[in-house]
Simulated assay, not measured.
Amino acid sequence: MNTMDVALICKALGDTNRLQIVQMLSDGEKCGCKLLEKFEITQPTLSHHMKILCECGLVETRKEGKWSHYSLHCETLLAFKQFIEGLSCCKGKGGDGQ
């Protein structure tokens, strides 16, 4: 995963509503109507949040009738997790942060 992709994901997750949406999707696909029930936002605002999450690759969408169903894009999430796990805060020669 390149740094541009990571930056887009970090920017997307920098909004508390989008972070909560990702948390909700972590236990499986959700209809947009279920996401709207959780938040006190309008449908256009939800669409804006979902567009950002989809554009950075964290979320994928599936249309069913008039509703969109959202789920996490596991490959992107795993690549982001690996990037974060690869960061360290080494202060000494030992590499254990001490």
Rank of each mutant, 00 (worst) to 15 (best):
T3A: 15
D5N: 05
A7S: 12
L8M: 14
I9S: 00
C10S: 12
C10A: 11
C10L: 14
C10F: 15
K11G: 09
K11I: 14
A12W: 00
G14K: 03
N17M: 11
N17F: 14
L19K: 10
L19C: 14
Q23S: 09
M24R: 02
L25P: 00
S26F: 11
G28S: 10
G28I: 07
E29K: 04
E29W: 04
K30G: 07
C31I: 11
C31W: 13
C31E: 14
C31P: 10
G32C: 05
G32Q: 04
K34C: 15
E37M: 03
K38E: 10
F39L: 08
E40L: 15
I41C: 05
T42M: 07
P44M: 08
T45E: 05
L46H: 06
L46M: 12
H48C: 05
H49A: 10
K51Y: 06
K51T: 06
I52C: 05
I52T: 07
C54S: 08
C54Y: 05
G57I: 01
G57Y: 00
G57K: 02
V59G: 00
E60S: 10
E60G: 07
K63Y: 03
K63P: 03
K63I: 03
E64P: 08
E64C: 12
E64W: 12
E64I: 13
Y70H: 04
Y70P: 01
L72M: 06
H73D: 14
C74F: 07
E75L: 13
E75T: 11
L77E: 01
L77Q: 00
A79C: 06
F80W: 00
F80A: 01
Q82A: 09
F83R: 08
I84T: 08
I84W: 07
G86S: 08
G86M: 05
G86V: 06
L87M: 12
L87G: 08
C89W: 10
C89P: 06
C90Y: 08
K91D: 06
K91P: 00
G92Q: 10
G94A: 02
G94Q: 02
G94Y: 03
